[in-house]
Nucleic acid binder design. Structure first.
Length: 308
DNA sequence: TTAGGGTTAG
């Protein structure tokens, strides 16, 4: 359905506000690629975007990880004289953040970092976005580095900050640093939060401390899909295949969480580690027939390992 | 009419 286009046919000439509202509507309804298409239509009809239009389109590019269009929009920003990164007494911070975040979300970290350093004013969300992007795109060390800069700058990290840096510790296998973050979130009293707990389980498992991973996991009052999955994968990754499978059985008995594609990567790899061919085949079938999860290339990879 | 942050796999 393209409700906007129907309206479009009926209105001979739209102004920039109308176009912008349509684009914003698509962005706010999770139709980022549709928003980008509308923006391109608008451009081809020579309606000049304003700063607000550009913000919405940049958000759309970030959400759909469309770096190519994002760069075009960025040059359009400069062309129209709106560049918030050139010295100006009153830079548009919303636009600056939208440009930065587009590069960060699309994984162009060098440009994102350059803009981050030039940002006219930084708040905690911008810091968190920089840290999260480094972590997500495999630069865990940089994520931790920006975290220390954040402390030096006098900001107070919050839950989102810790989710990223705890995850980064797991990727680095830095147990000591992970433990210090654990102490920090205990003091902040956000340890019972299921997301924080999940990040800790993952960190401890990846750092080789299975006992602490189990402890954090069992202390969690509510366990969602991601929490169960982290525990199962953490056990499977470190040679506790049997325990991973009994944990998966408990998960299936928990009405509050149901397995997803990622859970099954853990389950199937546990079966292959332990050499349980039939159980692996049974889980593969169950994944499709009971949970309606279509296998991905990773699932097939686990099955190949299992059968070879 | 204006944005933006998070954990699980690969």
């Amino acid at each position: 359905m393209k409700p906007g286009l129907k309206v479009l046919d009926e209105i001979p000439k739209w102004n920039v506000v109308a176009w912008t509202s349509l684009i914003a509507g698509y962005v706010n309804n999770d139709c980022a690629s549709e928003a980008i298409r509308v923006f391109k239509d608008m451009e081809s009809l020579n309606v000049e975007p304003n700063e607000i239009t550009l913000v919405h389109v940049l958000v759309a590019c970030a959400r759909s990880r469309d770096l190519g269009t994002g760069k075009l929009v960025h040059s359009r920003v400069r062309q129209l004289g709106y560049d918030p990164f050139v010295s100006s007494c009153n830079p548009n911070l919303v636009l600056a953040t939208a440009i930065f975040d587009m590069y960060a979300k699309c994984g162009n970290l060098n440009t994102a970092r350059d803009l981050f350093d030039k940002m006219p004013k930084r708040n905690l969300v911008v810091w968190n976005s920089m840290i999260a992007s480094y972590n997500q795109y495999g630069q865990a060390e940089e994520a931790v580095g920006v975290f220390s800069d954040l402390l030096v700058s006098g900001f107070d990290p919050d839950k989102a900050t810790f989710l990223s840096v705890i995850s980064a510790c797991g990727k680095l296998g830095d147990l000591a640093l992970g433990q210090s973050f654990h102490a920090y979130v205990l003091k902040m009293n956000i340890c019972n939060d299921v997301a924080v707990g999940t990040a800790l389980v993952d960190m401890y498992a990846k750092s080789g401390d299975a006992e602490s991973a189990r402890k954090v996991f069992s202390d969690l009052k509510t366990k969602d899909t991601k929490a169960w999955t982290s525990m199962i994968i953490g056990l499977a990754m470190h040679g506790h295949g049997e325990e991973a499978l009994t944990t998966f059985k408990r998960m299936q008995e928990d009405a509050a969480a149901s397995p997803d594609q990622i859970t099954y990567i853990g389950v199937l790899s546990a079966c292959s580690h332990v050499g349980l061919v039939e159980e692996g085949q049974r889980h593969f079938t169950e994944m499709r027939n009971v949970y309606g999860i279509e296998p991905t290339i990773e699932h097939y990879g686990c099955m190949v390992d299992l059968l070879s």
